[in-house]
Design a protein around this nucleic acid. Structure first.
Lengths: 219, 219
DNA sequence: ATTAATTTTTAAGCTTACTTAAATTTTTTA
DNA sequence: TAAAAAATTTAAGTAAGCTTAAAAATTAAT
């Protein structure tokens, strides 16, 4: 499959979360930086290949085949991220940037080699789940966003849901890393800010950040 | 630069050894598995970009710029080979196959990370020299083909110049590996065969193989 | 419930990287 | 050295993956 097709199914898969309209051609086009016309064109082509269901003016929906394709690319992306992070100690932004290219030129053979080497991890350094060889994500995500945490409680960072360099730089600078422990010291409900303590530092985070930082209860 | 262009300049660079005619469009076409017409087409395009010199019916010649491009791709290819071989213990055939794709989607940034990680090696697992970041190959090759070795002398394997799976399988099976030591026990000049001793095994090699196995004198 | 704004689709056209077929030039060989 | 063979080039055409512009349909707003 071509890079264009792989990116297309990936974009649909990733947009398929909240609003049904998020997988309409225009939104996929915006995500990929192509024209709406190009997205419609591609949608028709992929429908003919049974990769997605296309009906005029409706949202695009991946078939089983299409979803498998998307998960296969996402698997390779996240395996590369995990591998580059571990091996070369590259930043969250750098690993994403490189994986974005490598994912399309990686055989299943090599993907499995990487996975084995890493001990078949279930999460990448952003906390995103890594699908297995069959495109299955077995792990149940029990994490909540930092916005919904309670004052005085301890949490483990489980996901940094972004691809923004500025955000990652901020996280790296402040020890906000997958697996690290934090204490929520204050929730300012009025202005939607959260104060946390990490490595003996106190940090105040606004809603933009607390919405994309996910954590697990330490029990 | 596109994959097609990178492969084109690479093919010219690699064919530019013995016969001048080896870089004529037809031979490049054959190497790349495209039609002669396509090769001529591409040659004209690249000439317009000052990547090579094109004159009707003449052999193609890379400009400085074109050669730099070729060496940059070759550098990435060989770094990947070295890395995959070391990290995943993949065979010479497997590393070549994967590197053939990865080389086109590797940033200079990542290439340097890989190089640093490996200790900036000067040779890949086939014994092929790895150009540095500036496209320079500093090492002087003093190796000779096994066909030209002398009876009773000890040599170090310095290069396995092939991309044939069968050959690599044979090498792996018999310990014929970059850096390994061998003793030339007999040269059968009449039928152009060479008998060697390696790991207490005696192997008889025909011309096809002795021509592509290079060695260095142990002095 | 119309009107306005937005989105989607259609249509026409472009570039890249190929193809095959025919014409031309070069090279080989007898 | 002239004819035959081979290689190269030109010409015409194709598919993928885009573009812009205009038409059609949907969605939002008053």
């Amino acid at each position: 499959m071509s890079v264009a097709i792989e990116n297309f199914v990936k974009a649909i898969y990733k947009n398929n979360n909240n609003d049904v309209n998020d997988t309409k051609p225009g939104n996929i086009a915006k995500k990929l930086g192509i024209s709406n016309a190009a997205a419609t064109d591609m949608a028709k082509k992929l429908a003919a290949k049974d990769i997605l269901n296309y009906e005029k003016y409706q949202a695009l929906q991946l078939t089983n085949k299409g979803e498998k394709m998307a998960l296969n690319v996402i698997r390779k992306h996240r395996l590369w991220e995990a591998f580059l992070h571990k091996t070369f100690d590259m930043t969250l932004h750098e690993i994403h940037r490189e994986a974005e290219f490598l994912e399309h030129e990686t055989s299943n053979f090599l993907a499995n080699k990487i996975s084995d080497y890493l001990g078949n991890p279930k999460f990448d350094p952003h906390g995103d789940p890594i699908p297995n060889e069959n495109g299955e994500i077995t792990t149940i995500d029990t994490s909540i966003s930092l916005s919904n945490t309670q004052e005085g409680k301890q949490y483990i960072i489980s996901r940094l849901m972004s691809d923004d360099k500025e955000f990652f730089d901020f996280c790296a600078l402040n020890g906000l890393k997958y697996g690290n422990s934090i204490l929520v010291t204050k929730q300012f409900s009025k202005n939607k800010m959260t104060q946390i303590s990490i490595n003996n530092n106190t940090i105040l985070l606004n809603e933009d950040f607390t919405n994309i930082i996910y954590v697990n209860d330490t029990n």
